[in-house]
């Protein structure tokens, strides 16, 4: 038998063909019918959010005193409201606000929450205790009550709503991040990185964050759903978007007095909220299944002797 040549491994069996992570996730999502439907709804939402005002057949504040409380028709597919405004146009345009509030507030929660969770989980000890107890306090407040309190301090409006929702979701991201960081930092590859002399910041950025991306992506998707719901709730309470700017929550509020006479005023914005929240949830769940770390190691087959 041969003494190992330096190139002995070259003669080894052909390794598994390279499949990119993104390709694998996409292929798995494509096989999941509900997830595809969810992605489709989200695509519609994004298009509406981006091009809403251009696509809307009427202006959002185009008052038409001759056509108040009109039921759905060819001219007004979602009917008109108490000021004769086209509900379809308003729902379409409000998509942008919902999307914007969702993205910005979850963005705030993600940025602050992940930073706190990363630092707490990585350094543990006192830092961890102080940071996470703060998060616990924040978490202990009922979501809407906290948001109402923040609105009370900062005043009502779009920016306040975003900040309020962002603050509310920060502890969730901090917790998810910390839990994942705690398990990742025990991995040998983190010790290996420390052994090369890498700084804490480098290890967190290059080794810890990419390895906790999966749970964060899932959490982001689920949080977007709840953020949009929260925005609707705040607007419903009159604490979010101020009229005459359209918002699904506000429209729902306005429609509540006319449920019997003009059901379309509440139904369509409500349906929009329902579909978008459902879509984010379905996609979030699908991502959770696909990004399951147990599926990431194809080498498990190798270990079964």
């Amino acid at each position: 038998m041969s003494v190992t040549e330096p190139n002995a491994e070259h003669a080894g069996p052909a390794p598994t063909p390279h499949v990119s992570e993104r390709g694998r996730v996409w292929a798995a999502l494509r096989r999941n019918k509900p997830a595809l439907a969810g992605l489709f709804i989200l695509a519609v939402l994004v298009v509406a959010g981006a091009l809403g005002p251009l696509l809307a057949p009427y202006g959002i504040n185009e008052v038409d005193a001759d056509h108040l409380f009109q039921g759905p028709s060819r001219d007004h597919p979602f009917g008109t409201d108490d000021a004769g405004r086209d509900v379809f146009s308003r729902v379409l345009v409000a998509a942008r606000v919902s999307l914007l509030v969702g993205l910005v507030s979850v963005g705030i929660a993600l940025l602050v929450g992940v930073t706190i969770g990363l630092v707490a989980g990585y350094y543990r000890g006192v830092v961890d205790n102080v940071l996470m107890r703060c998060m616990d306090v924040l978490f202990a407040f009922p979501v809407l009550l906290l948001a109402v309190a923040i609105v009370a301090v900062l005043g009502r409006g779009l920016v306040t709503a975003m900040v309020a929702i962002g603050v509310v979701y920060t502890p969730i991201f901090a917790r998810v991040t910390r839990a994942s960081v705690l398990s990742v930092r025990e991995q040998v590859f983190v010790t290996a990185a420390v052994s090369t002399g890498a700084s804490d910041w480098r290890i967190m950025r290059r080794h810890v964050l990419p390895n906790i991306a999966a749970p964060l992506i899932v959490q982001t998707s689920l949080s977007l759903a709840f953020a949009i719901l929260s925005e609707a709730a705040l607007s419903f309470l009159g604490l979010g978007i101020q009229p005459p700017q359209p918002s699904w929550g506000r429209m729902l509020y306005d429609g509540r007095g006319y449920v019997q006479d003009a059901w379309w005023m509440g139904l369509f914005p409500g349906l929009a909220i329902f579909l978008v929240v459902l879509a984010f949830n379905i996609v979030g769940d699908a991502l959770r299944d696909v990004l399951d770390p147990r599926q990431l190691t194809k080498d498990e087959a190798r270990r079964t002797a």
């Binding site: 038998m1 041969s2 080894g12």
Partner: peptide, 8 residues
């Protein structure tokens, strides 16, 4: 040197 078998 130990005698080895190439590959895995």
């Amino acid at each position: 040197r130990l005698l080895t078998i190439a590959g895995t």
